[in-house]
């Protein structure tokens, strides 16, 4: 069947309007089998609506959507058995123990993972017999993740999965996701932690005002212009300076020479010098601020407004 070769998720011209408000305004998106896509965007940009349409929770207004070869609006139980869903907000009730809850959910799947293995994978071995209501927020979130993967899904939706995790728990969680990726699980991840998106994602897409404004491999998102390194320093007059340049070493050398020539007793060391390669977070923030600039008209360009790059000579001028 061509299902095997077809992408896990294929979206064309997806639109969703609530009354007169357009939440999703023409999205095209592909997620290949085994790929992890990080879907980024501010709250209210249309992320959750898009995901809920893919999960089958919401109906679309128009457009084509195929998830694991089926239309989510009509997907049956066998189709659902291949999805794992970790919702953004999870139920508060906790009458059952971690193990009871996982056993129960494992029973819905035709091919569940081993309950104790999953408990171990999310690091809750010592809490397996504890009622969920007695767990901390971060521990409950791990239960949510465990419930999402207990059915051995082909496609896993992770909607802000690590909210409430401490840094260590987040690292452990990353390890777990790397393991799932290695098993070939396709993952759609939304997160507000850009380091997490960079760590886990193969590709990222940025959604703003219901449209995808940038999409690409994590290290290419936003295009070349967005990736131009930034050199920051404090000049002789004490003012903060910042310059984007494709040739940071050259600029730094020139700055050093200048500082030495000025002879201000700092041995040619410009104050607070740093060379920054824009992280995913920098690129993302630039995309968002560019799109929300008041002068922008519809048809926003997909590249961030690049800061003019200057030659070292101009920079010193």
């Amino acid at each position: 069947m061509d299902q095997i070769q077809s992408p896990a998720v294929r979206v064309r011209g997806l639109r969703k309007a609530y009354g007169g408000v357009t939440a999703v305004d023409g999205i095209d998106l592909d997620i290949a089998r085994g790929e992890t896509l990080a879907l980024l965007g501010p709250n209210g940009a249309g992320k959750s609506t898009t995901i809920e349409i893919l999960e089958g929770y919401r109906r679309r207004s128009s457009g084509e959507v195929s998830v694991l070869g089926a239309d989510p609006a009509t997907g049956g139980r066998a189709w659902r058995a291949e999805l794992g869903i970790v919702l953004q907000s999870a139920p508060e009730t906790g009458l059952y123990t971690v193990r009871e809850q996982l056993r129960q959910f494992a029973g819905y799947s035709p091919h569940p993972r081993d309950v104790d293995e999953v408990i171990a994978a999310v690091g809750l071995e010592r809490k397996a017999g504890t009622r969920i209501s007695k767990l901390s927020g971060g521990q409950r979130r791990r239960v949510d993740v465990a419930l999402g993967i207990i059915g051995r899904p082909q496609l896993l939706f992770l909607d802000e999965p690590t909210t409430g995790f401490d840094p260590e728990a987040r690292r452990e969680f990353w390890g777990l996701i790397e393991q799932l990726k290695a098993e070939g699980t396709t993952i759609l991840l939304t997160t507000h932690y850009l380091d997490e998106a960079a760590q886990l994602g193969d590709r990222a897409a940025v959604i703003l005002d219901g449209r995808i404004v940038a999409e690409g491999a994590i290290d290419q998102l936003g295009g070349r212009a967005a990736r131009v390194p930034i050199v920051r320093w404090r000049d002789a007059s004490g003012a903060r300076r910042e310059q984007r340049t494709e040739r940071p070493a050259e600029l730094v050398a020139a700055l050093a020479a200048d500082a030495e020539a000025a002879g201000d007793g700092r041995d040619g060391e410009p104050a607070e010098l740093e060379v920054i390669r824009p992280s995913l977070e920098d690129v993302y923030l630039e995309l968002v601020s560019a799109a929300s600039a008041p002068a922008e008209t519809p048809g926003v360009s997909s590249a961030p407004t690049p800061t003019p790059t200057a030659t070292p000579e101009e920079a010193r001028a």
């Binding site: 066998a78 869903i85 919702l87 999870a90 139920p91 959910f105 819905y108």
Partner: peptide, 18 residues
Amino acid sequence: AGEKGDGTLKRLGGTPLS
């Protein structure tokens, strides 16, 4: 109604449970 309100049903609806 409680299960609907607290998201329990939404979660179940995302599983193959009939």
